[in-house]
Amino acid sequence: MRFAFILSETFSGIRRNLSMVISVVLVTFISLTFVGSAGLLQMQINQMKGYWYDRVEVAIFLCNDTSTASSCAGGGVTDSQRDAIEAQLASEQAAAYVESYEYESQEQALELFQQQYANLDMAESVTADQLPESFRVSLVDPEQYEVVNEMFSGMAGVEVVSDQRELLESLFSLMNIASVIAIALAIIMLITAILLIATTIRLSAFSRRRETGIMRLVGASKTMIQLPFLAEGVVAALLGAALASIATWTIAKFFIADWLASEYPQTGFITSTDALWLVPLLFLIALVLAAVSSMLTLRRYLKV
């Protein structure tokens, strides 16, 4: 009886206030979609980090005869220098950081180069001795690049130690900026949503002031008086969250998992199932929204 009554009061409130409730639904929908998109971006960044960091290595480029770097003043790397570097890689000291390493000769480098740039005319004219030989090192912990850099960059015959992660970092920082922007927009929209829900509750309280006045008069409990208004905000916010969840999932499914993944097959992308992890988060935010705006409003406009 009591529950059914509160429910019917809630829905009559929504009916009377339909346009406001719809605007609350839409604003929550948009703001939570921004939150969801930022979430997807972050998930994608993590996914790519995991994917690439396993494949990306530290390259120790050795001097060749054409190197111009100051560390290569003595000309191309000698056999004894190369052996010393390899011994260092295999040493106990390095074992804590180096998982494995591979030697890449100038010929192998040329082969890879020609594969990667097969469509450039220049690829034909490059010769093996223009390219550096290198040690491809994969690290136990990719974050430990600096230690490895220090260990090898001072050695004779080493031109440069390069961390190929750096290339990716710039991409990731771009994606991070994008997700920060999305979060910033989301926060602005969420504040709008809070104020809008507060206004909706206030309007609703005003349009039902006769009812609430009588409820107070006959001694209805605080719950009985305030719950329908609270529920109104919660229902609208949850509807918005539901729409935002669908939108987020749609982006993950059709844009990322289907389209991007087929355009860039060699890259690891998140799947639409991963996007489902964001759904509880979006619903939680919606609940917090409704709770905050109700606290702002009920105390002031629905005194008992």
Binding site: R216, L217, V218, G219, A220, S221, K222, V304
Partner: peptide
């Protein structure tokens, strides 16, 4: 404040 409704149930206005 949450006992006030109980008071009002004893009153008709």
């Amino acid at each position: 404040s949450w006992r006030v409704p109980h008071l009002r149930r004893d009153l008709g206005v």
